[in-house]
Design a protein around this nucleic acid. Structure first.
Length: 827
DNA sequence: GAGTTTGAAACT
DNA sequence: CAGTTTCAAACTC
């Protein structure tokens, strides 16, 4: 599968490049249809596509590229997605390998999903479109890698004014834009006008064709997309409307209308926005979280206004900010710049750009979704139903902002940061829910994530966070909920701590008290910070490190880790992730295999987990929470550089009989201290190897399941950062979220170390085990890993004496090794 | 509650 | 990469 997919993806890339060139040469006409169609397809969910699709297909089919793509299209999206991921990861250095994968994967997945959806519904005609789109989507990502050349060509081609953009073209554009975006991101204001023009046309179109707008919304991912679209539309509209009205628009409109009709993306806003958002997404993925942040912020705070505004050229006060964001987004958009730069590309180009942008938008939307929209989308997703989406769409069209009440957004943000990577990761993990998958397919990976998250959140909320949920507006709730879920770690923490809900509320006077309260109730997971100088924008801040926004309970000063400062938070996260992709990843890794083993020694399960970096304790003997290993409820490992390790969960040296005894004692004590439920969880996990899928190549398989579990146990934290990275797995995205990955639990605490461990191990452990790569080396993680480099002591390798945990871990590691190689982000 | 200790994170 | 500083949690009194 993978090989085939790769081939396909490669072919697609080639095609895209060719197309890009061709486009530059003169395919523009083809592009228009193709692009639009592709965009539409991408954007649309099968549902709406069906409704509106009717017209556009033929155009696509005409182009050889489409045919080719169509041929390729049969390719399974999933595979392609994976492939793209690798490429994407490469392209996006910022994303931590680990985190990135989840993030990227999420995105990719979404693409795949889209593709599938498209393809699935695809009628033969659509199939071509779908294929194209798929290619485009992948192309986006892939192109990013390859993109540079094509990008230029695109830029010219696009600027050339070719209105129509073939999907491939779009892909190439996207790639180019991405590349450019990195450079250009905010650079050109001019882009705004173009975007604006497009936006206008789009907006006009939107005004004319309401239908497509809704589609876009739905397709895009529901609320998020909508907001974005609106945003884009507004921004674009404002500046560019006059221009947009050009002749190109007519042709474009005709095509676009088809496209629009075909896809929701058809809506001018969608296109315009798409370009912006998409770029943003790329940017976001690659480097620029800020744009996304802005966008998300705007969308969240101003989406409603934007929605209404989009049509309005004039900028309202609120709108201005939005416009700015749009501008940023558009600026971010290479397309806009390109079009402008390029030759004032005709409107057609703009349209193309828009089309492309629409694709990007999808990406971006995802990002946004993570951030702000997420909640709504989730809500929608929850509604999964088209109805919900439609409603949202309607809102979006008219008022994306409305959909995402700024207030709620802020509040939500608090609760849920857009941490992409992490969230994604968490989401991926959580994605178990069918809803999530669907959502992803529908919209973007992000959305999916969100959706999944939403579902999870719902659970969590249901379980114990009702109070929280209640506090939040329903609409916002959905969104918030998702984020929380995404921010698994947080969620876990929250859930873990029975008092978390209360804690969120400002009842507690002193953070310490709060902490203790939480801790007492398993509040460990709950993260309240007391930061005074870090502004909660450094890993010193537990909240920030966990990918969550600071909440009321926090006693932090000058806190920037709040939804209001989403941009800053995201940017900071990026920076941190750039330095250390795993910065937001769960610190404790656990091998799935180990789980099974651990099953044998349920009590010892912690041993199976290990701290990624290991600790560096010198005075605490690894017997206090100063020790991250101990804090995480895991034994010290080779990776640890601790001195006089007495970690009750397992000494790094390998516990001798005495040590074992001590460990067991300490471990037992710790366990006792800990709530019994933790053990239960662990045991559950252990017992259910399924929960910890063998290292699947994708982090997706991660134990997200745990998330739900954790969520249930813990009230979601008020806010979590998506990111990521990657972040975060994130989110990022995702930890690097990155990514996300870390999504689950940036820092699994006793309660959830297992979960986090599982995930990480899946990703990291294999490498370690293999020895070929130290997780660190692969990941870039900071050095503590030196120890890893050092020959592993016997802890893992040797079946150690007794420490149950260790044993299991060791065995597990060995087992896991073979399965994981794929996971590693190795270049 | 204030102060100290500790080790991670960040910085140089 | 190593050393130092900064930071906030953990801990003690």
């Amino acid at each position: 599968m993978s090989t085939e997919e790769e081939k396909v993806s490669l072919e697609r890339e080639n095609v895209v490049e060719k197309e890009s060139e061709e486009l530059v040469e003169g395919r523009k006409s083809v592009r228009g249809g193709g692009v639009k169609g592709g965009v539409v397809v991408v954007m649309d969910t099968p549902e709406r596509n069906k409704n509106q699709i009717a017209t556009p297909i033929s155009k696509f089919e005409e182009s050889p590229v489409f045919n080719f793509l169509n041929n390729l299209s049969p390719i399974k999206l999933d595979k392609s997605a994976h492939f793209t991921q690798t490429l994407n990861s490469l392209s996006f250095a910022s994303i931590p390998s680990v985190f990135t994968s989840p993030h990227v994967s999420s995105i990719r997945e979404s693409r795949f999903l889209r593709r599938h959806l498209l393809s699935d519904p695809s009628k033969p005609e659509f199939a071509s479109d779908n294929g194209v789109k798929v290619d485009t989507d992948e192309g986006m990502l892939d192109t990013v890698n390859n993109s540079i050349e094509p990008k230029e060509s695109f830029g010219c081609g696009i600027s050339g004014g070719e209105a129509p953009a073939s999907p491939s073209h779009e892909c190439s554009k996207l790639a180019v834009e991405l590349a450019r975006s990195l450079n250009y991101e905010c650079s050109s204001p001019s882009t705004l006008p173009t975007g604006g023009i497009k936006g206008k046309s789009l907006s006009e179109f939107a005004g004319t064709s309401v239908t497509y707008v809704p589609l876009v919304q739905e397709i895009s991912g529901k609320g998020l997309l909508r907001c974005e679209v609106n945003m884009d539309g507004t921004n674009e509209i404002g500046p560019d409307k006059g221009e947009a009205s050009g002749c190109d628009w007519e042709s474009l409109i005709t095509d676009a209308t088809d496209l629009l009709i075909f896809d929701s993306p058809g809506d001018p806003e969608a296109f315009t926005k798409a370009s912006g958002p998409n770029f943003r997404t790329f940017e976001y993925v690659s480097n620029e979280i800020q744009n996304v942040q802005h966008f998300s912020q705007v969308s969240t705070s101003e989406c409603g206004g934007d929605g209404s505004e989009t049509e309005k050229p004039s900028t309202q006060p609120g709108e201005e900010s939005q416009l700015k964001e749009y501008a940023d987004a558009e600026n971010m958009k290479p397309d806009a710049s390109l079009t402008n730069d390029g030759t004032g590309v005709g409107q057609s180009e703009k349209n193309d750009n828009e089309m492309v942008s629409a694709l990007y938008r999808g990406m971006r939307r995802r990002c946004l979704v993570f951030e702000m929209v997420g909640p709504r989308r989730k809500h929608i997703d929850e509604g999964s139903g088209s109805s919900a989406a439609q409603e949202v769409d309607g809102n979006v069209v008219s008022n994306d902002k409305q959909l995402v009440p700024s207030k709620t957004v802020n509040e939500y943000l608090r609760c849920t940061l857009p941490g992409i990577g992490l969230h994604l990761n968490s989401l991926t993990a959580s994605s178990k829910d069918g809803k999530v998958v669907k959502q992803e397919a529908n919209a973007s990976g992000k959305q999916l994530v969100i959706a999944s998250g939403s579902s999870i959140n719902l659970h969590s909320s249901v379980t114990g966070q009702e109070s929280l949920v209640k506090s939040l507006p329903e609409t916002s709730r959905g969104g918030e909920i998702v984020p929380f879920e995404n921010s698994l770690p947080l969620m876990e923490d929250v859930f873990q701590a029975p008092g978390y809900v209360n804690s969120e509320e400002p009842n507690q006077t002193s953070p310490k008290k709060k902490r203790r309260r939480l801790e007492t109730g398993e509040g460990e997971s709950c993260k309240r910070c007391n930061c005074k100088k870090s502004k909660c924008l450094k890993l010193y801040c537990e909240c920030f490190a966990a990918g969550v926004y600071c909440v009321e309970p926090c006693a932090c000063q000058d806190c920037f880790n709040k939804p209001i400062h989403e941009d800053t938070v995201l940017a900071t996260r990026k920076q941190i992730e750039s330095r250390n992709p795993l910065a937001f990843a769960p610190k404790v890794i656990r091998t799935t295999d180990s789980i099974s083993e651990t099953g044998d020694d349920s009590s010892k399960t912690p041993a199976s987990a290990r701290h990624k970096r290991g600790c560096n304790c010198k005075k605490s003997g690894c017997l206090k929470k100063y020790c991250e290993c101990y804090q995480g409820g895991v034994g010290c490992s080779i990776n640890c550089r601790c001195e006089g390790c007495k970690n009750a969960f397992g000494r790094k040296d390998g516990i001798d009989g005495d040590a074992e005894e001590e460990e067991t004692d300490a471990y037992e004590k710790s366990i006792v201290d800990r709530t019994s439920h933790k053990n239960l969880v662990q045991s559950d996990i252990e017992q259910n190897p399924d929960s910890a899928p063998p290292a699947t190549p994708l982090s997706f398989g991660r134990p997200p399941m745990q998330l739900p579990f954790s969520l249930k146990n813990k009230p979601p934290r008020s806010s979590f950062l998506s990111i990521g990275s990657s972040s975060s797995g994130g989110i990022y995205g995702a930890g690097q979220g990155v990514g996300r990955l870390n999504l689950f639990q940036p820092q699994p605490k006793f309660d959830k170390p297992f979960e986090s461990v599982q995930v990480e191990e899946d990703e990291i452990m294999p490498e370690i085990l293999q020895g070929t790569k130290s997780p660190v080396s692969g990941i870039k993680t900071a050095s503590p890993n030196r120890k890893r480099v050092s020959p592993p002591h016997c802890d893992y390798g040797n079946s150690h004496s007794h420490s149950p945990g260790r044993r299991s871990s060791r065995k597990l590691i060995l087992q896991s090794i073979p399965s994981f190689p794929s996971l590693t982000p190795n270049p």
